[in-house]
Structures are given as structure tokens and as C-alpha cells.
Design a binder for these strands. Structure first.
Lengths: 216, 216
DNA sequence: CCTGGGCTCCATCAATGGGTGGAGATGGGC
DNA sequence: GCCCATCTCCACCCATTGATGGAGCCCAGG
């Protein structure tokens, strides 16, 4: 019985991790790694070229975020089956990736069994979200989301700016800054800017990587 | 010419990454992976058992930190050759790992060439620290380090506590809390608690993982 | 059209935070 | 023994922050 292999594309910038995935998957019967990509642009090229059955995609990629890649792929191939890979279970990432159309979510700490069974499940058309993650997702669903402006302000807070500085930066008055802060504190369920900052980092609302960039 | 292989132990909790490392190293002539460990305790057991020439060790491990493992191994085998692996170039981690006796430092985003040449270099007795990291290390060297108490206070700040709450928690007066904050702000080179919090996370002084734990 | 959400601004007030300049107690290292 | 770093506390002061309760503007969707 020569059943068709499930054709997998791997999108992951870390060379070691990519190798690990290839090594794990290629020894499995019925799976075949047809392509690898190390960044978003390459991911889209490879996707078009191979039209894989399953795409494993890291959320943190250089230049283009994983979420963006997912959106673009889904735009041209709405029934693409995408599985998100990530190191941390940053709540916001999960939310956005699943919103963008990912069918499943895996942490890099997973076992090979989890990896393989998830690939099979998603290929069979199921959505496969681990209970622990589903739970968090449910929590997050109930949470109001920040408006674009609130997000701008939060970003500045994380970067250690004072209200006055934020006002200057965003070209609004300090009073307006306070208004935004007041509502975002409520939405995040915290009571001051320091808690807002750590919550933002912890939940992945503001990525840690953006810190260094915006400093100078 | 049958020269001896360099015998390598891999300490890494993420299964996929571990597989990747094994896959990368085992195809290289002159390298041999003699053991794998997924946590600190296992690392020490495996080290004693195999006495490898080189130990690749992830800094973030469950239960016991990589730095701790390094210290313990160095305690019993002072000339052990340890290479630290990590995802982020969190300044504080580098500092502590190298202090603890690691000979080199590699990011998981490295190429296989970097990995292999670093292993060879360290085996040959060299210390091998990438220029970019050496630079940061030099910066950090000049930085005064926090006293234990200042660290306690910083931890509380990251967890979003007010000065009063910190005082209660640590059983000191609010005035003392302010004193500690004042000196730690100076040492971190920041001007307020929010900056202190993000700097602490960013530099790896207070690990992100500790946030969830201390909340409830 | 008109309703609602988001953005902007205002004033005011109490609480919190941070700067300054002390000062006593302890304990390890020279 | 003496010094130095650390930890502890105090008082005073001003800046910043967050809470409250408005208010007008714009624009997209019903």
C-alpha cells in the first residue's frame, strides 16, 4: 500500500531547530519535508513552489512576523493548513496566529509524538489545540482588545517613556496620553504603568525585540 | 588516519533543538555525540558517566538553571570545556555563564559552521566569544552589580508591586525600599521603575518565567 | 441620519514615586 | 582595630502618575 506522503514545508529561522525538525520528520513514514525557509519572503516563495499539505511556521522570524506570513499565505491559498511553532506560550501570539488562520499551535518543547500526531490531525482536517492553550485562549477571548492608539501608548510605556515624552512622541497632549493609559490599564486588568509594561511583554503584546530597536 | 573523535554531551530541554544538534554534529567527521540530557540533574549524571570533551549546554533548563549546572560541573571537573547555548543574547546570562566557567557562547540562530568551528576551537583550548558578544560583555563588566537586597526589590518592581507593598513583602519600611530603588536605578542606568522593570527583563536579570510563578 | 467608538482635550485631586542628604547598625576584609 | 559596603531608617519636597467626570470631533455602519 503506497499511500501518498504528507508534504511538509518548514519555516524557521534557527538553523539548528530547522535541522531538528527535518531530522525528526524525515524518518517518519508518510511524511516528507519538501522545503525549508529561513524567513518570511522565502516562506512565501517556497509555499508557492511546493504547495505543501502542511506548513510548520515559526512565529518569530526576521523582518516579517510569522503572523504576517500566515496572513499572506491564507490570502492566496485559503485552505492552506498551517501549524504555528513557537518557543513561548505568549498569549497574544497564539491569539493572533489562530486569528490569522493557523490550525494548530505547538511549543518547541513538544515531544516528537506530539509533533507528528498534530501534523496528521491537521492534515486530516482537524484543528488541534492543546487543552492548556485552549484554556488561555478562552481567557484572552473575553479580554477587550486595545485600540491602535492605546497600543502606541503602551509601546512607549514599555520603552520607559514618561507621559510628557509620550505626548511629544505621538504629538498629542499629556492629558490625552493619560486618557489612553487609563483605558488601557483597565483593559489589561492592571493598576499602573509598570504592571502594564511587564504584562505587555509577558503576553507578547509588545515583543521584547522591539525594545532595543526603538531605544536610540 | 584514525584521529580520536571529539566527544560531545548535549544538554538541552527542547527535544527538537536537541535532535537538530545531534543531526548536525553526527554527520561531522571527528565529532561524536556521546550523550544527551534534558535537564540539569540528568546533565550532571551524564557528564559523570561520559566525561565528554565538550559539553553544549542550554542556559534555560527546567528546575535547575544552566548556570547552576555549569557551576556544579566545574566544581568537580575544573577543566571541563563547556559551551553555552541560548536563544537570546540576554546580557546578564552571558555574564553569569562565562563567570561560571563557560568557554564559549553560541546563539541558537548560529550556522552549523559556527557551531562546529566553535566546538573545535574550544576543544583546542581556546575561548571563543563572538565579537558582538565580547563587546556587550565588556560594557556589562563596567556596570556595578546589584546587591542582594536591591535584587529583591527589583524583582518586586518587575512584579508590579508598589513601594508600600514591597516594604510589607520584604519586611522593611517604605523609606528603605525607596533607598534601594534609588541606588538600583542608578546602577541600571535608568530613571524610573518602569524602565527598571523592562531593563531587568531585557537583560535577563529577572527571568520572564518568574513572573507567572510569583503572581498568585 | 444618528449612534457609537475612538481620539482628542480639559481641570482637579489624591496618591505614589523619586531626589537629597543625612545617620546608625552590622559584618567581613585588610 | 578600622574601614567599607550593605542594610536599615528618617524627613522633606516636588514631580509624576492615575482617577474622575466632562466635552467636542470625526467617521464608519446600521
Amino acid at each position: 500500500m503506497t499511500k501518498e506522503s504528507i508534504r511538509v514545508l518548514i519555516v524557521e529561522d534557527h538553523h539548528v531547530v530547522r535541522q531538528g525538525l527535518v531530522a525528526l520528520l524525515n524518518v517518519v513514514d508518510g511524511l516528507e519535508v519538501v522545503g525549508e525557509a529561513a524567513d518570511g519572503a522565502e516562506a512565501i516563495t517556497q509555499f508557492r513552489k511546493h504547495l505543501p499539505d502542511i506548513t510548520l511556521i515559526d512565529l518569530r522570524l526576521p523582518r516579517m512576523s510569522g503572523v504576517e506570513v500566515i496572513q499572506r499565505i491564507r490570502m492566496e491559498t485559503p485552505n492552506a493548513r498551517l501549524i504555528v511553532l513557537t518557543t513561548y506560550d505568549g498569549d497574544e501570539d497564539i491569539y493572533r496566529a489562530l486569528q490569522a488562520g493557523a490550525r494548530a499551535y505547538l511549543l518547541k518543547g513538544m515531544t516528537s509524538d506530539e509533533l507528528i500526531s498534530t501534523i496528521r490531525a491537521v492534515h486530516a482536517g482537524k484543528s488541534h489545540i492543546p487543552p492548556a492553550i485552549a484554556e488561555k485562549l478562552a481567557e484572552r477571548m473575553g479580554t477587550e482588545s486595545l485600540t491602535p492608539r492605546e497600543f502606541d501608548v503602551l509601546e512607549q510605556i514599555v520603552n520607559g517613556k514618561s507621559n510628557k515624552e509620550i505626548g511629544t512622541e505621538l504629538e498629542i497632549s499629556e492629558a490625552t496620553v493619560k486618557t489612553h493609559i487609563n483605558s488601557l490599564l483597565g483593559k489589561l486588568g492592571v493598576t499602573d504603568r509598570t504592571q502594564a509594561a511587564t504584562a505587555a511583554i509577558q503576553r507578547g503584546i509588545v515583543p521584547l525585540e522591539s525594545l532595543r530597536k526603538t531605544k536610540p
